[in-house]
Amino acid sequence: MTQLPETTTRKLGLVIDLDTCVGCHACVISCKGWNTENYGAPLSDTDPYGADPSGTFLNRVHSYEVTPETGPAQLVHFPKSCLHCDDAPCVTVCPTGASYKRADDGIVLVNESACIGCGLCAWACPYGAREMDPVEKVMKKCTLCVDRIYNENLPEVDRVPACVRTCPSGARHFGDFADPDSHVSRLSAERGGMDLMPEMGTRPVNKYLPPRPRDVGGDIDILAPFLTPVTDGPKGFLGWLDRALSTLPGGN
């Protein structure tokens, strides 16, 4: 099992739009909520009300400051969960076969009942997408909500990952990257979807849309005419006003 499928029928994954993510952490908590109650062991929290609270999360939102050569510094909110890599090192290193990539849709999962909790898969993941649960002692990771996306107990519209369903600003998109016409494939193509750490050769399925250019301003030559003065000071304004009013259809 820990051999990777040569190909997967579909490549399900996420597009995350860094131009739109406001860093609200909604996806973080809906993920925590869904996956605590559902797939496998609950995501536990140690010392939850004490001095060193620490819990298992499958999705976390970082914030980075980008300082360009010119123009003011920018802030980018950066959600990160499993990228469901095609060449997933976390899978091949697993000694037990607990860690595997589904041939059908490419989702990378952990079969918790087979996991010995050696942690090696987390070592092998460049993205910090796997966390050992401190209470259950098994490896937890983003399941791409495999227990939602096909779930017949959910209405059709809700068969998407919890984080995607909840994202208020619509910065998360779910779909099949194997289909070039899918919403996610097109978005990624149009907006230059990026791989994280391409040099790692993991070939992530999830794509990140870069922030659009900031603070570039419009072309001042085009804009300048809009501010051509019709007046210097109040007196001139009233003159202009009379002229302007008389040209208005029906006086207004």
Partner: peptide
């Protein structure tokens, strides 16, 4: 950090995702 985030130029971690500690 540039290849890790895909962000160009001078990139700095502004704030961790959680102030609490974690496994990673």
């Amino acid at each position: 950090l540039n290849t890790a985030t895909g962000l160009p130029g001078q990139v700095r971690s502004f704030a961790p995702p959680h102030t609490g500690s974690n496994y990673l």
